[in-house]
Amino acid sequence: MPEKARVAILISGTGTNMAALLYAAKADDCPYEVVLVASNNPDAPGLRLADAENIPTWAKSHKGMDRAAFDTEIGAAIEDAQAGYVALAGYMRLLSPEFVARWQHRMLNIHPSLLPKYKGLDTCQRALDAGDSHAGCSVHLVTAEVDDGEVLAQTKVAITDGDTAETLARRVQFAEHQLFPRTLARWVTRYHAPDWLLSEVTKYALALPETEARDTHGSPGFRCIKGKYFAIFSQNHHGDERVALLVKTSGQDEMNTLIEADPETYHRPAYYGASGWVGVRLDTGEPDWDLVETWLRKSWRAVAPKRLTKLMDAADEF
């Protein structure tokens, strides 16, 4: 099992979602551990629970402080805890753009609505006022815009006759406690999930002009429409357990030079290696997506019609 991800949780109040994350982390097979609970409210009840469970805590009031200055201090506490991810669990304070940028794609929030519906506060009352059949909760990535990041998972909660904002909110909270730990666990292990890696590679490959996804010899592949393949997603290909992107090089010399210089990243793939293709590993940690994009573009150029590469060259000049 890969090393557990280190997670810092930010709270402002009772910390029920923090508790859900904390107790889920006690399972031996949970892929994350809670290394810090921090708050902008020194009197937050959730801090006492974290202390009782021997989780390090940090707290300081934000009152009278510049937003960026406060975020620098809480950010330093997170860094000191060597956290790799941040979970917002009822953290009722807007974050500075600098803090959000530092934790891009590594900071998750739980929100009590089915986003993009009802961003902000009073979500259950707004769902009732709208006559919705369901309320719910969402886990999303945090961006500079409030409750606007990519939604990673949702749970619907039925609205029943006689519901008030309070009764509905209690059931939504039950759903939150189930959804947040499960989604966080899936997110911190995504780099080891072939399906997620393939979905990301597909986005980059299909962003190139006139390309399509089509399997080749049982593996997902990408080619110019009605043309040749320029990339193949390799998982258990010819018995190779590595998860990799196979791309075209200029030939054996370039392939061998790459492997010799960086054997942790590159390898000679079975069958395709004889034709000068190289394997770029995706399963050794967080992939270098700039490298993946560069290789996809280079490999695509090797097979794309000249009319397309000329258009690409013209676009690159701008």
Rank of each mutant, 00 (worst) to 15 (best):
Y32M: 02
A304T: 03
P287W: 08
G149D: 07
L184F: 04
T155Q: 15
F222S: 01
T160A: 15
Q82K: 15
L152P: 01
D313A: 13
K306F: 09
L88R: 07
R242S: 13
L179F: 07
A50Q: 04
Y272A: 10
A20V: 00
T155N: 14
K63Q: 15
D288F: 05
L296H: 05
V35K: 08
F233T: 04
A127V: 02
K117P: 01
T160S: 14
G75C: 06
P45V: 02
K117Q: 15
C137M: 03
W300D: 02
S234V: 10
G120L: 04
G218H: 05
G149P: 02
T123N: 04
C224Y: 13
G251V: 04
H105L: 11
D253N: 12
D283Q: 09
A205C: 01
A205W: 06
T16K: 12
V243L: 11
T309V: 10
A175R: 00
V86S: 08
A59I: 03
N40H: 09
Y204E: 10
A205Y: 05
A207L: 01
H62K: 09
L311S: 13
R307T: 10
L121F: 10
H62L: 05
M92T: 03
P2Q: 11
V243A: 10
V201K: 09
A38P: 02
V146G: 05
F180D: 03
V86K: 09
W277H: 06
A130S: 09
H105Q: 13
F318T: 14
L282Q: 08
A231T: 01
K203H: 11
E286P: 07
L94V: 14
S275A: 14
C137V: 06
H111I: 01
I11N: 03
L179H: 05
T216F: 15
T284H: 15
D316W: 01
V34T: 10
N54F: 11
G46N: 06
I11L: 07
I78Q: 08
G279N: 05
D132N: 11
G149N: 06
M92S: 06
G285T: 03
T167Y: 05
R102I: 03
A205G: 01
H105V: 09
D66S: 11
